[in-house]
Design a protein around this nucleic acid. Structure first.
Lengths: 194, 194
DNA sequence: ACGTTGATGACAGTTACTGACATGGGTCGC
DNA sequence: GCGACCCATGTCAGTAACTGTCATCAACGT
C-alpha cells in the first residue's frame, strides 16, 4: 500500500464539485475542499492553479476531441462544414451523461467567476480551432470567423440540451443550430410585424 | 476648494493604466495605484469592484452605443443586418483614438486575468444584443446566434484595426468581416489543394 | 543497503478584498 | 449665518487565495 491514498487529484475534484454545489463557490474555502479530500490546502494548489480550475480539469480533453475531428475532416471540406463536424464530435464526447453536465453547469451558472473561467476555456477552444483551420490553408480572418461560428453554434445547442427535458441528441441539436446560423447569414429572420 | 482633489475615479484609472503598462498587471499592487492617485487602497475598492475592473470602466458606455444602434434599426431589418449596424456603431464610438486602444490592448494581451475579464465584457455585450433582438420578436436561439455573429465580426475587425498600420476605418473593416462571414456560411472557403 | 525521486505536509509571507467606524468639508433648511 | 445632516474618503482589523521554502518518507533502481 502506498504512502498516500490514490487519486488525490480526482478526490479534490469530487470534493470541490460537491462543496460548490452544497454551499456555493464563494462560501467554500480551499482548506475545506482539501480537508474533505483528506489533503492539505497546499496540495490543492499543486494540482490546480487556482480555486476555479478544479472544475475545468477535463477541458483539454474536450478541446482535443473537437480539434481532432476538425483535423480529420477531408481537405476539400469547406471551413464551416469542418467546424460543424468538430462541434458534432465535441457534442458526442459530452452527451454520455447529461445529469453530470447539468450539475456542473448549475454550479457555474451560480457564480460570475466560474462563468469567467468558462469563457476562457471556450476562447482557448476557439483559438485552437482557428489554428487548425489555418494549418489547412484557410486565411487567418476567415479561420477566426469560422471558429467563432462553430463555438457559437455549439453553445446554443448546449444550452438547449441542458435546458430541455425531451431532446437528448446533442449532435443533432448542433446540426440544427448550424442550419439556423446559415439561414441567418443568408438574411433570413426579419422580425414579424407586431 | 474642495476637501479632496477632483475626479478620484479618473485619477485611479489613469494611475492603473500607467502602472500596468510600466511594470505589468501582476507586479502592480492596488496600494501602489492608490498612492500614485493620491488616495488609499480602500478608496480604490470603493470605485472599482476589483483590480481588473479599473481597465474596463467604459465598457458600459461602449455596450450602450452598440445596443442603441440595434434598437434604432428599422423593424424590418433582418437580424444579421441589425447586429451589423450595431457593430458599425460600436466601431465608430472607438475609432477616435487608435493609439489609446493600442496601449490598452497591449496591457490586456500581456495578462491572462485581464483577457478573462475582457471576455466577460464581450459576453455581456452579446447577451445585451441578444436581448434586444428578442425584444424585436426574434426567436431566442436565433437571437443568440446573431448576437454571437455580430460580436465575432467586431472582434475580427478590431484585431485587424489594432494590428495593421494603414487602415484606419474600423466600421469599414467591420462591414468587410461581415461579408467574409456571409461567404463562409454560404459554404465558401474550401482550402486550396496544396 | 543506500542514494534518489516525487508526492505530500508544515509554515511563513504577500496581497486582494471586506466590514466597521471615524473624520470633516459641503450643503441645505431655517 | 448656524446647526444638522451628507457623503467621499481615511483608518484599521480581518479573511482567504495563492506562493516560496524546506522537511518527510515510502518506493524504486542499482
Amino acid at each position: 500500500m502506498g504512502r498516500w491514498q490514490p487519486n488525490a487529484r480526482g478526490r479534490l475534484q469530487r470534493a470541490a464539485l460537491e462543496l460548490y454545489g452544497e454551499r456555493g463557490f464563494e462560501q467554500t474555502t480551499v482548506a475545506e475542499i482539501a480537508q474533505r479530500a483528506g489533503l492539505t490546502e497546499r496540495t490543492f494548489f499543486r494540482h490546480f492553479t487556482d480555486k476555479r480550475e478544479v472544475l475545468f480539469a477535463n477541458a483539454e480533453e474536450f478541446e482535443g476531441s473537437f480539434v481532432r475531428a476538425l483535423v480529420a475532416a477531408p481537405e476539400a471540406t469547406p471551413p464551416i462544414e469542418a467546424v460543424a463536424a468538430a462541434a458534432e464530435a465535441g457534442a458526442g464526447a459530452i452527451q454520455s451523461d447529461r445529469a453530470q453536465a447539468r450539475r456542473r453547469q448549475a454550479v457555474i451558472a451560480a457564480n460570475a467567476e466560474l462563468q469567467e473561467r468558462e469563457l476562457t476555456k471556450l476562447a482557448r477552444l476557439t483559438a485552437a480551432l482557428a489554428g487548425a483551420l489555418r494549418e489547412r490553408g484557410v486565411p487567418p480572418a476567415t479561420a477566426s470567423l469560422a471558429a467563432e461560428a462553430g463555438v457559437a453554434v455549439f453553445k446554443v445547442a448546449f444550452e438547449r440540451w441542458i435546458g430541455e427535458e425531451g431532446e437528448e441528441d446533442l449532435p443533432r441539436l448542433v446540426r440544427q443550430s448550424l442550419d439556423e446560423l446559415r439561414a441567418l447569414a443568408a438574411g433570413a429572420g426579419a422580425a414579424s410585424p407586431g
